[in-house]
Each structure stands twice: as structure tokens, then as C-alpha cells.
Design a protein around this nucleic acid. Structure first.
Lengths: 156, 156
DNA sequence: ATTAAATTGGATACACATGTCCAATTTGCA
DNA sequence: TGCAAATTGGACATGTGTATCCAATTTAAT
């Protein structure tokens, strides 16, 4: 139901958010998130085109979150790589149809709406700020580098 | 997000429900629901193995709903052909993990749960009974055959 | 018994999602 | 200036979902 592509992109986005505002190379991100590096490269390109991350070329380059983590929703990330397409007209294309969906597709679309809404409600910052952080989480080695500022971007 | 396979299977199931308790050949179902016949055949086999439809071989054979339409949920149909698999352990398989999901995957799984619940709440009978029936719907030619009993199965 | 309508299951074909590789380019740094 | 680190984009490889075809089987009706 949820594609690998979505998964990978979200891992990368969350990881970048956790490391913001420092840039990370694709290789670093791939290692931390366990995503195939070459494939991740493509996904980051898509996120870049969508204005979610920003790429920095050349030595010391890498990827950075393009905006504050609390300004990027899960939905944005997902839609950048594998858009949720809502059902807007009956897939059967019957002549008898107006714009109204049949009961079946209406329900299916409602389900899509649920997911879309849930994804829209959550920002990367919120994922990082989760109060259950004491419990084991998908712990990318949360830092180890030189002096870090708190994830979640205090500067606002 | 929702696979063709799901779509097709639901169309077939809803159609069979609308025609119950009469059996329909794969060819008939395919035509009414605009699903590729050969592919539909495979899907019906899966629904049959799942106990959702019953196959009748030989001349005058076909497919029938195996149970009352109000006893079959959308979820059952979907799970028979393209199971919604909830996230039960972190896909990253980090050593630091207990059974608890990280915040990211917890949210993703919550979204899956929303869909699963929505699908579990709706039966085929409810799809057919939708009060908006006056509005154009994915109108399979709702009968034309010999004497029919009301869809929704009056006999309880 | 024969025929025709129908499902079954296997083999195959095609399309798209996933994943890899590499040459070209950009750029920080010695 | 030259080198090495990094992204970019295209080409290619692989895997899985989607779709087709057909021989074998079952069975109603003649």
C-alpha cells in the first residue's frame, strides 16, 4: 500500500530534518537510513525539484532541508515522489456519470482522503519531537558530529 | 496508492453482490465492470480461495458471492488480493529496537490503520444500499434478467 | 456419448517500480 | 592549477504488478 519510494523519501527527509541545518552527502544519508545510495540519489533529486531539500554541488556539498522542518509535511514529501492521487471521477467512465462518484469509489476516495489528511497534519518537526522519544526509535545515530543545535530549529 | 488489483476485485465483488444470489460468468462480470477478462479470472480465483466468492464449474457455471453481501467487508476483498500490511516492526531493523515503532513508522502505520478500519467498517451490502443511489453511480446495468430479488438480501 | 460453456492453472508477455552504473559537471581546498 | 568530493542526468538492469493466452478439466444439455 505504501511504496518503497515513499518510505525511502520519508526516511531521508526525517534524517535531514534531524541534522538540520547541516548538509549531508547522499552517501551519509543512505548509510544512516539504509536506503540504496544510487536510488536515494534519484529520490533526493525529486525532493530537490519539489523544493523540499536543496542540493549543494561540489566538494563539501550535499543535501539540506530547504525549509524549516516544521514547515514541511509528510504529505509534501510523499507527493513529491509518489503522489497520492485522489479519485475524482469514476474510473469506469460511464456515460451515466456526472462528476459524482459511485458509492464504491466514493468510499475508496474517502479512504485516500483519510491518509492525505493524516499526512498533511504531520510535519517533519513533529515526527522528531514525538514525546515517546525515550522509547527506542529508528535511531539514526543522533549526531556525533561537531556542536549541534537542537533538532526542530529553535530559530524561527 | 490503491492498486488496480484492489479496484478490479472490488468492482467484481460489488457487482456480484448486486446480482446475488444469481451466478455470473467471468465474461459477464468482466464486461459489466470493465475489467480485463483474463486478469479478472485470476482475481476471482483468489477471491474464491479466500471464501468470498464461490466458483461453479461447467456449463451454466460462474461465480456467486459465497456469503451474504452484508457479511463481506471491503477489507476482506482487498486483503484477499492485495493485503494491507500494517507496519509491525521498524523496517530498518535497528538493534536498538524493541517492538515499539519509531515515530515515523508509527505515523505511517496509523495511516494504514485508518484505511484498514474504514475498509473493515463497510460491507458490500452497504455499498449497494448507499442512500445517494438517485445520483448516477457506477451503474452496472442493474438487472434486465429474469425476476430478481432486491439487492441486499432480504432473507436474513 | 457428444458438444459447448465454463473454471483452473501454467506459461508467457508487457509495463512500471525499483535499483545500479557511469560520464559529465560543479566546486572546495591544497 | 590540479585534485578530490560531491551532485546530475542518462542509460541500463532487475523485479514485481498487470495482463494475455491456452490446454486441461468440469459439467449442463442435447
Amino acid at each position: 500500500m505504501l511504496s518503497q519510494t515513499m518510505e525511502y523519501s520519508l526516511r531521508a527527509a526525517v534524517y535531514l530534518a534531524s541534522q538540520a541545518p547541516r548538509s549531508q552527502s547522499t552517501r551519509q544519508i543512505a548509510k544512516a537510513t539504509k536506503v540504496p545510495p544510487a536510488y536515494l540519489s534519484k529520490l533526493l533529486q525529486a525532493l530537490s525539484r519539489a523544493g523540499i531539500v536543496q542540493s549543494i554541488r561540489g566538494v563539501k556539498g550535499g543535501m539540506v532541508l530547504a525549509r524549516d522542518a516544521d514547515d514541511i509535511t509528510i504529505l509534501e514529501v510523499v507527493n513529491a515522489v509518489d503522489p497520492i492521487d485522489r479519485i475524482t471521477s469514476c474510473p469506469l467512465k460511464l456515460a451515466a456519470h456526472g462528476a459524482r462518484l459511485c458509492p464504491l469509489h466514493h468510499r475508496l476516495d474517502s479512504a485516500l482522503e483519510l491518509v492525505e489528511s493524516a499526512f498533511r497534519r504531520t510535519t517533519l518537526a513533529e515526527v522528531l519531537a514525538e514525546p515517546t522519544t525515550s522509547i527506542p526509535l529508528c535511531s539514526f545515530p543522533v549526531i556525533a558530529g561537531p556542536r549541534r543545535e537542537r533538532a526542530g530549529k529553535p530559530r524561527g
